[in-house]
Design a protein around this nucleic acid. Structure first.
Lengths: 346, 346
DNA sequence: TGATCCAGATGAAGCGCTTCAATTCCTGTT
DNA sequence: AACAGGAATTGAAGCGCTTCATCTGGATCA
């Protein structure tokens, strides 16, 4: 920058102003500075800038699992919002590893980012306390571990489970199975509670629950293989599962064993992952509109950054049911352009 | 840090050394510093560190499309390798937007990152020249626009196309269709060339080509809908497509119109995206082992960082064929644990 | 003509760290 | 007892930027 100043024949301060507050600089100087920058190929050093200013224009997002396209959607929403505020969003994928998750929080903390969007695993949120103690702004996304002391954007998981079960019941299903998911996951438990509520409300409907250790499709296959061997009257006619992956496994296994989906058994997933529409049989699911979640989360963060009397808020978004072939049979194009756009929240 | 030094009763330099070169500091001082850090809740400021050192321990990765799980795999491989070198990997998703792609390159450039892993769109690579002129290290991943002046890790796209076509031919297919993909995409063109080579080699096999503007599943549906209306003798019996998405669309549409996959027509995708195994009919595909690509790319970057006589290398990895139901009919579990692990490269 | 203003420009101070030449303090050697 | 040599420590200098109190040179007005 010193070189730029010299070449342009102005002072350091003027170069800085030309870069950050052009309205404070005369057109003439602006021009000279611009030319000098061009000639020297000058690139501002954001580390020096952050150091001088005390914080950066970057927002860090720590997320658990890029394999779940929900998080990609969240990131997209957050990024679009960030860009409007001339901030940029950098992602760190902890890949289901608690250590990495903590370490990325620290990295963003050390970088003095403008804020952290945190889509944590279902586990201790001590990292949040740590970085907030250092004055770092944090907004929780998709899970908040019940804390009330910082902003969060959540999805009403209980209601999502309710929606799912009610849909199956409305389709005439009476022997429901809640397939898979570790009960210690907050979201899984909530969704199950919602399903239970719908079942209670309906009367004369049963809800069986078979948990699983993970949320992968293998578990769905295992569960389907298990129940399909029962006497016909005890085979469920409606399955809802807390992940699209499990639902995919369930469907796959049922079909491989000669059952018809959705005629013999309707199957419903959760999260509206990408592949629910790319599959040969499109999968009905409950969607949490990740784009919206990301957008709102970033808004909260920006508000916290700007408004000195900011108050922490917890936003709970309502999930939405998406009916596709796996619960309703073929019914025209299951993934129209319109639908695509909705998925992306655009 | 000054406070830490004071509280610990040592000098600034000693605190710095305790943090970065503990072997140069006596056990006693180390202890004192540790306690002081603990008590003050001190967090090193990486901006200041970067400023003093002149570069950071972060590697930035700019990628085009997080919806394609290939890139997620690449990021995973890169991250694992980075961690071994005590570097961390931050991701920026340009989401198919050229402006954003350039802007993220600049952001990493301004942050003086240790290097940039760049999985660019099929477009001008001027951003690469720009940041390299500033001394930034760049490794290209998955596409290099034919340049020879920096490291790159590529996939042998031509060979991938060859593998795909040869497989279909070996399965007895004679009327092949190369379905979809914009010809101006380097990868698409190469894959098509490879397919062509396999067809030439075989004799008495035809290869029809129907391009499309994008790589989404709608295009696959459109193409399938189109060819299925022909007289039977002119309907292809083998389809290979440059993306799994298109393949999924093709399969879906064929099935909806009463064709059997793979009996009437075998369909093959490309990239081994996540959903190829989560679908009701698992999709045969060509995989580029993203994990490996990311790993190697990061290795090249680290070498460039460390070795003063580093020479730029271009690594071309061979893709691999994965046969699943869509070309071979049901054949046991198409996605075993083993297979999963291989996908993840773990 | 001189007083008053104000848009612009200036440059020193300081952000929090690393580095390195200089210094101190031991230990072992002769 | 004197000294060499190494290990540990010190603190000033400097990284590239922003900020802000200060200054400059017209323009405006009475």
């Amino acid at each position: 920058m010193k070189d730029v100043a010299r070449l342009a024949g102005v002072s350091l301060g003027t170069v800085s102003n030309a870069l950050n507050k052009p309205e404070k600089v005369s057109e003439r100087s602006l021009q000279k500075v611009r030319i000098a920058i061009e000639q020297l190929g000058f690139v501002p050093n954001s580390a020096a800038r952050s150091l001088a200013v005390g914080s950066s224009a970057t927002v860090g997002m720590v997320l658990t699992d890029l394999d779940n396209s929900l998080f990609v959607d969240i990131a997209r929403g957050a990024e679009d919002q960030a860009r409007q505020a001339s901030h940029s969003l950098l992602l760190a994928n902890s890949d289901l590893d608690l250590n990495r998750q903590e370490s990325y929080l620290d990295i963003f903390d050390e970088a003095r980012v403008a804020g952290i969007l945190f889509a944590p695993m279902n586990a201790s949120l001590e990292g949040v306390d740590r970085v907030r103690r250092h004055g770092r702004r944090v907004v929780l996304v998709n899970y908040d571990g019940g804390r009330k002391d910082c902003c969060a954007v959540l999805s009403d998981e209980e209601y999502g489970g309710y929606l799912a079960a009610r849909h199956l019941i409305e389709m005439g299903r009476r022997r429901l199975l809640f397939a898979g998911g570790p009960e210690e996951f907050h979201a899984v438990k909530e969704r199950r509670n919602g399903a239970l509520r719908a079942v209670m409300e309906a009367g004369n409907v049963t809800l069986e629950i078979i948990p699983s250790r993970r949320l992968k499709s293998d578990e769905g296959r295992r569960i389907a293989a298990e129940v399909v061997q029962r006497p016909a009257a005890r085979v469920p006619d409606g399955v809802l599962s807390p992940s699209d992956r499990i639902a995919a496994g369930v469907i796959h296994e049922f079909m491989a064993r000669g059952l018809s989906v959705p005629d013999d058994v309707a199957v419903l997933g959760y999260d509206n992952n990408q592949f629910t529409t790319e599959a040969a049989i499109s999968i009905s699911t409950v969607t949490q509109d990740g784009y919206q979640m990301g957008l709102e989360a970033m808004k909260l963060l920006l508000d916290e950054e700007r408004d000195p009397h900011h108050e922490h808020r917890i936003l709970t978004l309502r999930p939405r049911l998406i009916v596709r072939e796996s619960t309703q049979g073929a019914s025209g194009r299951p993934h129209s352009e319109e639908e695509q756009r909705r998925r992306l929240g655009a």
